[in-house]
Amino acid sequence: EVIFMKKTLSAILAVLLAALLCACGSKTVENTSSPEPTATAEATATPSPTATPTAEPTPEATPTIPQLQLGDTIDLDFLKMTIDNISIEDEIYPFDTSGAYLYISDVDGSQYVCLCGVITNLSSSDLDSRYFMSKVTINDEYSYNAELCIGSNPNAITDYALEPLGSAHYYLYASVPDTAVNIMEKGTISLAFNDGFARSDGNYSYTYTIDFTK
């Protein structure tokens, strides 16, 4: 009986020991260390370059045509030309009528717008007025071609050439219908020429305008 109790006690102790060992083996070890924070990459927006506005091209300014008045003088390296008088005439006579002379006679239905003055050739060759461009415009609408006559020879109706360093009276004239003269409120004479009155290809180095009224 004592032996039985010892065996029983031994069995009980063995069971308790086994249970104790199982409890120790199943103990869960918890990781108490704090997790490392995950780095969050923030996308930094790169600012877009500010667009520089494209400057619009500046339109070229239209050249201003010089406006002449009575009493003015066109004074260039090769030329001096006075603007003395503007008149409307039935006939045109040369400045010198002391001897024999020719003139531009009256034509029915028209009159002459005439600009007079003195022209001096400062160049070393003849000035040929046939390449001098001029026109008369009435009321900014009706235009008439004009002709420059250099009166160095009163015995000629038209005289185109002026010798170097020569000086003479000139008249520039356009034949204008009577109807245009009658309605005229404003008249404009345009002058255009090149150095030495050289032949033009349609472009001119010098241009001028002169306004007048009846």
Rank of each mutant, 00 (worst) to 15 (best):
I3M: 15
K7Q: 15
K7A: 13
L9P: 02
L9C: 11
S10H: 12
V15W: 13
L16N: 13
L17A: 15
L17D: 11
A19C: 13
A19L: 14
G25K: 12
E30V: 14
N31S: 09
T32D: 14
S34H: 13
P35M: 10
P35W: 11
A39S: 13
E42H: 14
A43M: 13
A43N: 13
P49D: 12
P57I: 04
T58E: 14
E60S: 14
E60M: 12
A61N: 09
A61C: 05
T62W: 11
T62Y: 11
P63W: 09
P63I: 02
P66C: 04
P66W: 08
Q67S: 13
L68E: 06
G71F: 00
D72R: 00
I74Y: 07
L76K: 08
D77V: 03
K80A: 05
M81V: 01
T82G: 03
I88W: 08
I88A: 03
E89V: 05
I92C: 02
Y93D: 00
G99R: 08
A100R: 13
Y103S: 06
Y103M: 05
I104F: 08
I104W: 07
D106R: 14
G109N: 03
Q111C: 02
V113P: 04
C116G: 12
C116A: 15
D128Y: 07
R130H: 08
F132L: 03
K135A: 10
K135V: 02
V136F: 04
T137S: 01
T137A: 00
Y144R: 06
N145L: 05
E147A: 10
I150C: 05
G151M: 08
N153G: 03
P154N: 13
T158K: 10
A161M: 11
L162C: 00
L162A: 02
A168M: 03
Y170D: 01
Y171P: 02
Y171E: 00
L172V: 02
A174L: 02
A174V: 02
S175D: 06
D178E: 15
D178H: 09
T179V: 09
A180T: 03
V181A: 07
I183T: 15
E185M: 09
A192G: 09
D195Q: 08
F197N: 04
A198W: 02
Y206M: 04
T207E: 14
I210D: 01
I210A: 00
D211I: 00
T213K: 10
